[in-house]
Every structure is written in C-alpha cells, then in structure tokens.
Amino acid sequence: MRPSVQEMIAQSKGKKSKKIIEKIIPILLFLIASVSVLTTIGIVLTLIVETFTFFSRVSFIDFIAGTTWLPFSNKEAQYGILPLIVGTLKITLIAVIVAVPIGIGAAIYLSEYASETVRRIVKPVLEILAGVPTIVYGFFALTFVTPVLQGLFPEIKIFNAISPGIVVGIMIIPMIASLSEDAMSSVPRQIRDGALAMGSTKFEVATKVILPAALSGIVASVVLAVSRAIGETMIVSLAAGSTPRFDGDFTGSIQTMTSYIVQVSKGDAGYGTTIYYSIYAVGFTLFIFTMLMNILATYVSKRFKEEY
C-alpha cells in the first residue's frame, strides 16, 4: 500500500540529514559572504603592516611632505610622495577636463533629445567602450594619441601627461555618461512634461529642471569616475613615463602612484628592501585617495538625493 501524504510528510520530517542541511547551509553561506569582508580586512591589514615596516625606515614627515621621490638613488634614497601625487593629479585633471563635458553632454543628449531607437543603440555601444581593457587604451595612448599630439605640438615628449590623461578621460566617459543618464532618466516624466507644457524648450527643460533634479546622481558619477582615474594603472604605465616630478609641466615624462607600483613590481626589487616596502606605502596612499572618493560619492548621492 502506498503511504498517504501525511505519512510521507511525517517520514520526511523525521529525516535528520535534511534538518542538518537546513542548519548548516546558512552558516556556510554566511562564511562565503564574509569572504568579501575578509578581503577588505586583508587589504587594509596588508597595507598597514607593510607600510608600518616602511615607516620604521623612512620618516613619516619626509614621506608626506617630501618633494623628491628618488628611491633608486645609490647615494641617498629619498621618499617624498608629493611628486607621485602631483603626477596622479595631472592625469586626473586632464581626464576630468575631457570626460566631464563629453560624458554629461552625451548623457543629456541620450536622456532628453535622443529617440528611443538611438538610445537603445548608443548605450550598449558606450558600454563596449567601458569594457575595453585598460592595456588596450594604454597601447592606443602610446601609439596613436601621443604621435598625433606630437604632430600638433612638437614640444610634447614621447612620454607625457597629456596623452594618457586624454585617454583616461575617454575611458571614464561611459561611466559618467551612463550613470548620469540613469540619474536624469529617473526624474519623473510629469516634471519634464510640465516644464514643456509651460512653453520651455528642451534645452531649458534639461538645464533648469532635469539637471538640478539629477544633480546628486551626476556629481556622484563624476566623483566615482575621478576615483577610477586616480586608480588607473596601465594607461599611465605605458604612456606617461617614469619620472616623478614636483612641478606643473604636462609635456614631459611624469610618474603616478600606480605607475610607480608597476615600475617596482616589474623590476627585481628584492623582498625586504625599502623599495619593496615603499610600494605598500604608495599603495596605501592610493587606497586612501580612492576610498575617500568612493565615500564622498555615496554621501553625495544619498544626502542630496531628490525624492519623488
């Protein structure tokens, strides 16, 4: 005789293995989920511990206030990080000058002017731009943008800040365009229609109604893009050179925090040397910069968000 449904349920409830599974799985999944937390802890601890060793050899004041970065000097190595920060800021500045107008312009076009068809084609194409590996951008900067710039301005050297800056800008355009477009599209249609019905042109709607309403999202997208630009490594490693300098020159070779880490990693700075530990100190500085930017982006988009 077949067991009745009640009997089957009773039987199944009696199974111990099932109960155990139901208890173990959440714990197991929690452990898996904590890997991401452990990763963050790992990053922070790694950076702190190794940076600590670095500061047992180099004074902290010399590091954050020094204007000479000469780690490979045979006589007396100097570790003042300001030249690397200046290099990073040069790249970021040019990238922002390139990417902000183009990114926001494209976002306004896609969100306010473009037809549905155009938007459906252009947005995925822009996402391709975001998916191109940075090494490819670096190659593009070195073999195309730099020669073109040299043709226009002969004083530009083969390694300079302008070409990688422009290309980093191109790299972050999709990020700004896509996130800003999302912010503008989420402004309710009624507000847009209301302004149009009052006789505004589309441009007036975009600048006087949509931009203010979506400002928090737009600013957040720019801040996130700046964070990406600061952390960008391969484009600057290939095209910006490796000369740490504390000045305002954009036409010659520079060095950023990221490209210094790459330069040391490529060479054979032996484990335990001061140069080896210096990449952690630089990495820590870089980490703090990008972390502050990310926190700022979250803050801006939460604090100044317009709710409808």
Partner: peptide, 17 residues
C-alpha cells in the same frame, strides 16, 4: 557597504593583496 566599497578599490591594490 563593504561590497560596494570593495568594487571601488583600484586593481593594482588587489595586486598588493
């Protein structure tokens, strides 16, 4: 929060990890 922050860490820092 940690996951969204982790997404913003530069890849070169993951290299150091």
């Amino acid at each position: 929060t940690n996951i969204s922050n982790l997404a913003g860490v530069p890849s070169v820092v993951f290299g150091l990890l």
